[in-house]
Amino acid sequence: MNENPAIQLKNLSKRFGSLTAVDGVDLTIAPGEVVALLGPNGAGKSTTIDLALGLANPTTGTASLFGDDPRTAIVEGRVGAMLQGGALMPTMTVAQSVALVASVHRHPLSVAEALERARCTEIAKQKVSKLSGGQMQRARFAVAVVSNPDLLILDEPTAAMDVEARRLFWQSMQEFTAAGRTVVFATHYLDEADTYADRIVMLAAGRVVADGTPAEVKAVVSGRRIRVTFDRTWDAALAAALENMPGVRSVEARGSQATIVTDDSDATLRSLLVAYDDAHDIEVTAHTMDDAFLALTSKSTSSTTSSRTSNATPATTPANGVRA
């Protein structure tokens, strides 16, 4: 059996002039895994994918697919991809596009089968220029699977899709992964990563900031933020007391106002109100993924690697969620 990882990135970096798009990424994805690359826009997801596919040359580091140079794996037809800015020609029909790509592969699926797998049979004869956003993505999926690949890389596959189209898309994806194939998809929807991936790799500012099961990563990403004002002046003792309250991850103060990030806002609030009767103007908001990204990025400057074996644990502070 082939024990080579489907994807192996070692110390991968890419700089465009002064901008570092990918900054020392180490990542190993085993055959059969379904992995979400989660991150905000500009996190380096697309560039990482380009590097993994050999479409861009890394500034440092190496990328290999199935233990080989990416190009070798592509030539063998083991890799299919839906890229950002990789669209179909508007003058062709869906079936023609699939047939054209199939014609360059050595052992492609039949055009009809690729269309069926991507739920494109009814739109096969339609011109690409006439497709809706969701239909377009399905057509691109048909093109990506026509080589019958072992590894599928999808860059924001459900962008421009409505809820129903998204459901249909993931349904066809699950048939594909059920056969034990590897899928890596980039997304900025946490719920999508959570529902369809069995592993989430979070990227921010070109680095891997968290890597683990959806439950583990969600613990880092989720949480509540309590904003509270005190009548007393802020001091270190107060900060320490707040940090020791149940569920609290971090405390930040500005003047007499504190922002508490907590995993269990109910428990924190109970203790807070009991301990401090001068606490007022309390506001509880959901800790958004953007907040989590920000927190993780600002504290991840020393982090280098993240791998499957040293998963992010449900963290007490975001910084601890980032494992070196």
Partner: peptide
């Protein structure tokens, strides 16, 4: 030019079709 601006040539790069081809 159309193929480049649309990204069709990027799609072709993840096929066995070589640059020369």
């Amino acid at each position: 030019v159309t193929e480049r601006s649309i990204g069709w040539n990027r799609q072709l790069r993840i096929t066995p079709l070589s640059g020369t081809g």
